[in-house]
């Protein structure tokens, strides 16, 4: 049984006062291509994207989630995005509280997302889109 070791485990615990948020991080359904993703780069394969179960601080922002996802996908899919600094994995975060997908604005924290969009008594559900972005394509 392969057990995933913690990566960069730092021992600095934050105080218990910080509220934590648990969320389900799912691939955006519209991101799923019918055959393959365009753009010349067949990335990512749908089967390689998985639903992720995350716990983090309510202070974490969508940028934290996107950065984390980019790091994890880079590791898991073995994509050398930083090798030449020519490309990287760009992620965007969405939410669908009423079935309609809304792109979560930059800078919002998970606590704010819960307050603004997610007033349900179930764990927060957030969707992600992943793109393989070349250096020329400036995002954000």
């Amino acid at each position: 049984a392969s057990r995933t070791n913690s990566i960069g485990d730092n021992s600095s615990n934050t105080s218990d006062e910080v509220t934590e948020v648990e969320l389900v991080f799912k691939p955006h359904p519209d991101m799923i291509p019918s055959s393959s993703g365009g753009g010349g780069q067949d990335f990512p394969q749908v089967s390689q994207l998985q639903t992720r179960f995350i716990k983090t601080s309510a202070n974490a922002s969508v940028e934290h989630l996107n950065k984390y996802l980019g790091m994890r996908l880079g590791l898991e899919l073995d994509i050398d995005t930083d090798k030449d600094k020519k490309s990287h994995i760009a992620c965007s975060t969405w939410i669908a509280p009423n079935g309609n997908f809304i792109r979560i604005p930059h800078g919002l924290t998970l606590g704010q997302i819960c307050d603004k969009y997610w007033r349900f008594n179930k764990p927060l559900e957030v969707f992600y889109c992943v793109n393989y972005v070349k250096k020329d394509e400036i995002f954000e």
């Binding site: 990566i7 934050t14 974490a60 934290h64 950065k67 984390y68």
Partner: peptide, 13 residues
């Protein structure tokens, strides 16, 4: 567990 830093704010995911 993965610490992630954005804009000098580090959270552990």
């Amino acid at each position: 567990r993965q610490p992630v830093t954005v804009n000098n704010v580090t959270v552990v995911i």
